[in-house]
Design a protein around this nucleic acid. Structure first.
Lengths: 210, 210
DNA sequence: AATATTAAACCGACAGCCGGTCGGTAATAG
DNA sequence: CTATTACCGACCGGCTGTCGGTTTAATATT
């Protein structure tokens, strides 16, 4: 039996299936047939809406990044919180992902998902570090921190968290703790802040953490 | 006509071809047939020496990283040079690669080479940042810089150079210059050095640079 | 209201390539 | 002469992407 839907709706169905499958099996080991079966459509239909498997990935990332940057923008704008907390909150939210994206962001770091990882990281790097930079500038204005290069500090920070911290569970507890305090100390230096001020800003986060 | 060679020799022939092809076309778009033709062997022969395409990639990276870390170790040990110069020298040598590797390290950042890029980066991160960390510690001892977390600073630094600086030519000249000075300034802060001291250490490098 | 038109959505067989296997063959060392 | 090592190439299943044809549904026409 043949069911006809609006293009936009079908596209989203396909992206839903893709997101689920890419998240569990990874991009490479998900075949277009897997997607076909999941959605319940024929081969031609898939390629009527998307012209390649990679285009599906790109569209999926687009959609996902849209949601994530929206979330990030929201967090960054919560003026009732101190800047530092907003900063760390935003960063961790980005690398951990929301509720929906959690699955993907966890599977992303396996070698088979290298392409997906790189695309997402590039996207986050260009779309979201400006947000972080703005938070840092706000910190500058408030006299909390001081740097002439907010954008670059944001890039450096986010990049480090997103690559090294993602494999954090592979280390032992001691090593992990060391990495975290090292990172905070480094961030304090980059932002020319008093030693220990980052710890304070971060501690509230770990109350409800993983 | 059938020519028989020692396993080790054939393996190296295959790795040579693979390195050339992966470097120019990328890993994904290089088929095993391409390698077969380049070496001039049959399908079975390839899979007699390597049990999968990915194993070829891994072996190639192994060989390449061996050469690069050797080079890095050599640079890091040049005691006649000041520590800071050795540090920057080593970092740039790693991301730019040697003479042979130059081709690969340039092609690596295309999206299709994501897997290769990630594998190389992980390898460099684990194998080479300890070298950088040791240089930093030496700087500590000499009183040139001061940090309690040499390893983490090394990781952060190297990671940033290797991801952001690689696409440096995509920016305009002004932006590029800004990125570089920003990076140096940030590094100075991480290492708690006097402002401007990095500039001095780096300037000699740009005399003979790209 | 019934019918013709048209364009969008859909189908599934098929082509071509790819990575990997396997049984057999030639070369070489002992 | 024998055993091992290196090599061959036909073959297989699975994959992505193509294409001509078909159904559906909205719109125009009578």
């Amino acid at each position: 039996m043949r069911t006809v839907k609006e293009a936009e709706e079908r596209k989203n169905e396909i992206l839903d299936a893709a997101e689920r499958l890419f998240g569990t099996k990874g991009y490479d080991s998900t075949s277009t047939n897997d997607i076909l079966d999941a959605v319940g459509i024929a081969r031609g239909t898939l390629y009527y809406h998307f012209k390649s498997k990679e285009e599906i990935l790109d569209a999926m990332i687009d959609r996902m990044m849209g949601e994530m940057t929206a979330k990030a923008r929201e967090l960054a704008a919560r003026r009732e919180l101190p800047v530092l907390q907003r900063l760390t909150l935003t960063i961790t939210a980005l690398s951990a992902g929301g509720e929906q994206q959690h699955e993907i962001m966890e599977q992303i770091h396996r070698p088979q998902n290298a392409l997906m990882h790189q695309k997402i990281q590039n996207r986050l790097l260009t779309d979201v570090t400006p947000l972080l930079a703005e938070l840092i500038e706000e910190g500058n204005r408030q006299g909390i921190c001081q740097t002439d290069y907010p954008a670059e500090v944001a890039e450096m920070t986010f990049l480090y968290v997103n690559t090294v911290f993602d494999d954090l569970m592979e280390y032992g507890e001691a090593e992990r703790q060391r990495k975290i305090t090292a990172f905070l100390c480094n961030l304090e230096r980059l932002l020319r802040m008093e030693a220990g001020s980052m710890q304070e800003a971060v501690l509230p986060l770990f109350g409800k953490a993983r």
